[in-house]
Amino acid sequence: MAFRGKVALVTGAASGMGQLAAWRLAAGDATVVAVDVNEEGLGRTARRAPNVHTHVCDVCDHAGFETLVKEAEAEHGPIDRVMNAAAIAPAGLLLEQPFEEISRLIEINYLGLVTVTKTILPLMIERGRGDLVQFGSLAGWVPSQRLGAYSAAKAAVVSFSETLYHETQGSGVRMVCVCPPPVATPMLDQIDGDGTGPRSLKDVPPIAPEEVLDAIEEGLESGRFLVFPGKGTTIVWRVRRFLPTVLWRRIDAAERLP
């Protein structure tokens, strides 16, 4: 952890990487504003963690989130870090996936992150300090069959964040967009819990969520905006950029397997 501030806001804090991030910040005596729609999960995050303050809020609820930030800053002081970890990952073939599911996915994974960012980043820029951590995904760079909607949302996150990074350079706010490969969190069950997930990912061992959090801190400290945690992740990213057909051949071949 390389958090120098006092107050951090974490979305998606009821499970997975958001929860682990909240705990790490709390261990370091930070005041953590933990946001999620899952009240029960938030309860677990705050258990025996007196610095964790839970807020049930949908990141898509613009007005609700603005109020939350106002109240949180009034109570705890300026938010020094945001970790935009809230996301869902229902998988499936695009033509079979209901429109509502795709819409919800774009809403939470992309527009939710936009809501949080546009609410808090101006405050950070005004103060000339802060950390903004955007949870993208390697899937945002490397689309694969059965994960199209998720990939599209994460691609939007990456593009939005990369543009924002350049538009706000020199503002004093540290920014990272982390793009991990599959990570061993409950979200992985969402992707492939019922076996409908991308077959090309079946043999890819997930990395530990701790590795992702460590990579984020390294990125913030070294000033690297795009962060690819896990061995070989950067190579996959490069292959996608320079030899996209090679990657697609492998993905398609995996899908053709019986």
Binding site: M1, Q19, L20, W23, R24, A26, A27, G28, D29, R47, R48, A49, E210
Partner: peptide, 11 residues
């Protein structure tokens, strides 16, 4: 640094 722990997070 204890993160995910029955006794809560702490250093």
């Amino acid at each position: 640094q204890y993160t995910d722990n029955d006794l809560g997070p702490y250093n």
